[in-house]
Nucleic acid binder design. Structure first.
Length: 615
RNA sequence: GCGCCCAUAGCUCAGGGGAUAGAGCAACGGCCUUCUAAGCCGUUGGUCGGAGGUUCGAAUCCUCCUGGGCGCGCCA
């Protein structure tokens, strides 16, 4: 991002009325917070003779005790030692007395002290039934927020070249872009996913040239090769040929010139090969669940920035160098001078992005645009955003570069020259084969009914979870072996947890929403600590969504989902659902299990990991 | 040389001012006549890269240092 403009600069809708009586945990926390502030101020006034206004509300935070037996919420009182001129444990003790009384009056729960903390124990019966009902009523919408309602967001991601197929790096980009889009949408924003296809330039001409020379009229069909790979093979062929043919580079440039001059034969070839490339890439998008609301092509936008640059020149935002090239001077903000138009008047990469951004805002006036692009381009976007700001576009202040780190292999960097680049399709095939292997080795082919389809979903789950569990800004190591193992903290583990719950629900014979609702006595039935823990975790999902949206970090969701699944797995092992003591208890545990499945499923959707009924 | 980013268990990663720093993998030991063992439980493993500083309190914020990544084109 590197721009001063934080996402926080975006106009925010207040989060106050997200459906009354809904978002139970949020409401409960807010009540306790209000109460604690109120009591703290009274304490300050009554016992310390202080002005209540001296109590800084923002210093009161609500956290979670490190151990469950300590309580459900924690209020650290250390920050107030200074104002009170008293030791935190003493303040905690005094506050606790008042807070307990006030909470008792309002039936909110109990409080006790532990050192400098006041720990709160919630009335479980006040949360259990409402939380389960909310999850099971809202279903796929449970967790949806309005935090970003009214904010129109463009998310640009993927941006493939049409001279080769997608590789592992694209898969991280796609997973991030798709996931962040879904998360923002779930947080209330109206999201437009856009792609920018890099379909022009000398590198594109290279595969065209090789095809012209060596293609001999072959087609993807005639060769039986996926069409983007077919094109990619000619790019490889070009590089082989160029290694011994000195004239290769010049011939490619000549071809680019013919392309720019509109030479029919060149254009025809370009169109044909582009179609192959794009069709193949779109096939992979369909496979990975990635999609776009609008697709921009560089061949259509590369000239668009030029007029804007010329306008800016007239207004003195830019300057013309002696040789006729046009520049911006950003030295005053510790950046450099940067060329915007070549001396021959042609566009540069940056120019094109200027035009594209302006075009997008015309097409769909957004409040905010997020570029999902690798961290190598940090500087590029820093400059781009400043240029747009200096051109006077107020929306330029809400442009954001979601920069993500490199994907490396255990052996080191992927290098195209050494052939270590991991191809997206091959990787998916490999994961799929592993999943088939796993299913058959457990003799579950008959159970899953659709072996190929199930394996594909497991493969995708493994891949996307793996790619998203690392925070975007960090480089990551992709270990194919680990991603294939399906053990531990993985996508398949989450899918498996859901499949086991689904199995219980099927066996209960009551799969409709109404039949899974908790009975009146649910709070008396779910008295185990694991059950309370699960209810609390379910209630926290909306907060996880908000946090993921605010930080543009899908890893918040992967972590949340994994922790929920892990708690449930322990519960599943420990406690029988269908063979519980009484029908009411069966029904209650069934409702809890169904709610867990629903919330994990909602989380999975946000990280583009397919949900599985059986596996 | 300058700028940005990263550094937490053997490995891959969470945690981004609050209570004894977590998980997965790996290693070792238990648990399948019971709702899917792709699972569950336990043991082992960390002076949070180093040094200062801010703070009642620092893995977390600031400064410097070290190591690594990326960038500094009229390439994209």
């Amino acid at each position: 991002m590197q721009r001063g403009g934080e996402p926080a600069a975006v106009p925010k809708a207040q989060d106050g009325c997200e459906g009354r009586a809904m978002q139970q945990m949020l409401e409960t926390k807010q009540q306790w917070r209000d109460l604690a502030v109120e009591q703290l101020r009274e304490l300050a006034q009554d016992d310390y003779g202080l002005d209540p206004a001296q109590i800084d509300e923002s210093q009161l935070v609500i956290s979670t005790p490190p151990e469950e037996k300590l309580g459900d919420l924690a209020l650290p009182l250390f920050p107030f030692a200074k104002v009170f001129r008293s030791a935190p444990p003493k303040i905690a003790g005094q506050l606790c007395v008042r807070l307990s009384a006030a909470a008792r009056e309002r039936g909110l729960g109990t409080a006790e002290t532990a050192g400098g903390y006041v720990n709160v124990r919630l009335h479980r019966e006040q949360l259990i039934a409402p939380v389960l009902r909310e999850v099971l009523t809202k279903e796929a919408d449970y967790g949806r927020r309005r935090t970003l309602s009214g904010v129109r967001t463009v998310v640009e991601f993927s941006c493939p070249n049409t001279n080769k197929p997608l590789h592992l790096g694209h898969l991280r980009n796609d997973a991030l872009g798709e996931s962040v889009s879904r998360i923002l949408n779930f947080a209330g924003s109206e999201v437009r996913k856009v792609n920018l296809i890099n379909d022009r330039g000398v590198h594109i001409c290279k595969s065209m040239l090789a095809y012209q020379k060596f293609g001999d009229g072959a087609t993807p069909e005639s060769e039986g090769v996926k069409s983007d790979h077919f094109v990619g093979n000619y790019y490889v062929r070009y590089n082989e040929w160029a290694a011994e043919e000195r004239d290769a580079e010049r011939q490619a440039k000549d071809m680019l010139q013919r392309w720019e001059q509109g030479d029919p034969e060149t254009i025809e070839l370009w169109e044909r090969m582009n179609r192959w490339a794009i069709e193949g890439i779109e096939e992979t998008y369909r496979r990975t669940g990635v999609g776009f609301d609008a697709v921009y092509r560089e061949s259509e936008t590369y000239k668009a920035g030029r007029d804007e640059v010329l306008k800016g020149l007239e207004r003195g935002v830019f300057y013309k160098s002696d040789d006729g090239s046009i520049w911006i001077d950003l030295r005053d903000i510790n950046l450099d001078q940067k060329a915007l138009l070549r001396s021959d008047g042609t566009s540069l990469y940056l120019t094109q992005d200027i035009g594209t951004a302006i075009q997008r805002h015309k097409d769909w006036p957004f409040e905010r645009m997020i570029y999902v692009v690798a961290s190598e381009q940090n500087y590029h976007f820093k400059v781009l955003f400043h240029v747009l700001a200096r051109l006077g576009f107020n929306w330029a202040l809400n442009l954001y570069h979601l920069s993500y780190g490199m994907v490396n292999l255990p052996e080191g960097k992927m290098k195209s020259r050494e052939g270590t680049v991991v191809d997206a399709d091959l990787l998916l095939d490999k994961l799929n084969a592993m999943a088939v292997n796993e299913i058959t080795s457990k003799a579950r082919e008959d159970e899953v009914s659709d072996l190929a389809g199930t394996a594909e979903k497991i493969a995708l789950g493994a891949l996307h979870y793996y790619l998203l569990q690392t925070s975007p800004n960090k480089d990551m190591v992709f270990d194919p072996g680990a991603s294939l193992s399906f053990n531990g903290n993985t996508g398949p583990y989450l899918q498996y947890t859901c499949a086991r719950i689904s199995s219980i629900i099927r066996k209960a014979g009551s799969t409709t929403g109404a039949a899974l609702m908790p009975p009146e006595s649910v709070a008396e039935q779910l008295t185990r600590s694991e059950e309370w823990q699960l209810v609390k975790q379910l209630a926290q999902f909306p907060e996880a969504v908000a946090q993921a949206a605010e930080s543009l970090n899908p890893a918040v969701i992967t972590t949340y989902a994994y922790e929920l699944a892990k708690t449930f797995s322990g519960y599943y092992h420990e406690v029988p659902v269908l063979r519980a003591d009484t029908p009411a208890q069966v029904q209650s545990r069934l409702a809890l299990s169904a709610a867990v499945r629903q919330v994990i499923a909602n989380a999975l959707r946000l990280i583009d990991v397919p949900f599985l009924e059986r596996m």
